[in-house]
Design a protein around this nucleic acid. Structure first.
Lengths: 238, 238
DNA sequence: TAGATTGTTAATCGATTAACAATC
DNA sequence: TAGATTGTTAATCGATTAACAATC
């Protein structure tokens, strides 16, 4: 595959979602001074199977060497390239409440190629305050900060304001939105929305936890009289 | 399907992940005073197809009425039941930095059936402070607060401490962990971990954004001389 | 060359979707 | 009854997995 095929060949969504994990693992390996890594070892570090990893990488092109493995630095560069991380992306955060405040100060973004360049809110009490080194601006200032198509918007406003603020982001030229409000946003075609729903995550955990509890309470096997000794497992589940 | 089949019939993971969305939409409809909703209308509210919704609900049992739709209150109760939300779940948050602080104060958990019952940290400067009405305790106090198997642990510590703290959570009896640290946690069988990786979400958005940019820059169709007028679309992508 | 490990093939699995018979 | 809408079937699609030929 050609070097300049970045961005022109289809990569399955499931693969895209794993690329950041591979990238991070490679960073760790590079810092540890490793030159080369096998698909087996890298997959193990990320918690997936090696076949899946090789298949994922095959969608980006083939950067490994049979019998040897992958060059850590080279593979890191290739994946970073595909993720568009050769230059940092600008991020604006809208809604500087509890969560927005935390996101503004979150070091993890900077480490992974993002730069928070604007904080916005319309609650009169926060506007003007300095948070994580940036002065919080009113929403009306969005167009002054957003570079159309090149800025990611993070939405950390209450559910009832999310759609309205999203519309303003889109109007200002934002084409990628990370939404923390538990609502379905309607956006025009060409705008990409991802949703992080913190309460949902807990609910999914609760679903499985309850399942364990219910199953654990019920007998694992029917109690039949038996001549051979039987190990009864109670409450032990996957 | 029987009432008491809750927790005993297999529900596909993809379906489980959507149940919280359905539940929330039903809450909104119930508040709006709606008695009944069709799969078409509910699906529209959640942003999925109606066939998918009906298929999802069919895994829980069949609570609809042909020709009529679903009883809003009844369906809400059924889904809440399956999600184990008839009684609230207790949640402990470990790592009261930027993010943990925000999570402790996040109202969305309480609204959706969770109760934050403990905040923990080992950084000497936070321990003892009161955050969102709770005093931050040292990790050593975990066993005093955790009810084995019935408490969800939220991990908001730096990556390098995540595994160690996770081990302590598990030792205290936590069987469900929501992990915000960008690391792969190793846990014994029977412990359920979900990961929320904020930077990853941005990276996935960046991948698609870059793709739009690259494709937009390239000509959409080969430029051939043509007798008929041609509409050239530049930069317009899905 | 012999051993190791990739990249790819083919089989399997799970999720989505459209269509429609069942039925209120 | 006629119209509406569910629950289910069958077809399709996409993702995972194991196995192995290619090749360093």
């Amino acid at each position: 595959m050609d070097e300049d095929d970045v961005g022109t060949v289809d990569v399955p969504e499931a693969t895209v979602a794993r690329l950041p994990q591979y990238l991070r693992a490679l960073s760790v390996l590079a810092e540890a001074g490793l030159q080369t890594v096998s698909s087996e070892a890298l997959a193990e570090a990320v918690g997936v199977g090696s076949a899946k990893l090789r298949k994922d990488l095959s969608h980006l092109g083939s950067y490994g060497t049979r019998g040897v493995g992958y060059d850590v630095t080279e593979l890191h560069r290739q994946i970073a390239d595909h993720l568009g991380q050769t230059t940092p992306w600008n991020v604006v955060i809208v809604g500087i409440g509890n969560l927005g405040h935390a996101l503004a100060g979150y070091g993890g973004f900077g480490d992974r190629g993002f730069r928070v360049v604007g904080l916005f809110d319309d609650g009169s009490q926060v506007v003007g305050e300095v948070v994580a080194g940036l002065r919080v601006r009113p929403l009306a200032d969005l167009p002054q900060v957003v570079h159309p198509g090149a800025t990611i918007g993070v939405l950390a406003v209450p559910a009832e304001h999310a759609q309205g603020v999203c519309d303003q982001l889109v109007a200002a030229g934002v084409r990628s939105v990370l939404n923390f409000a538990p609502v379905v946003l309607r956006v025009p075609a060409g705008v990409d929305v991802r949703k992080v729903d913190l309460a949902s995550e807990l609910q999914i955990l609760a679903f499985h936890a309850q399942r364990r509890a219910v199953r654990g309470a019920a007998p694992v096997a029917p109690r039949l009289p038996s001549l051979a000794p039987v190990t009864e497992r109670v409450g032990e589940v996957v």
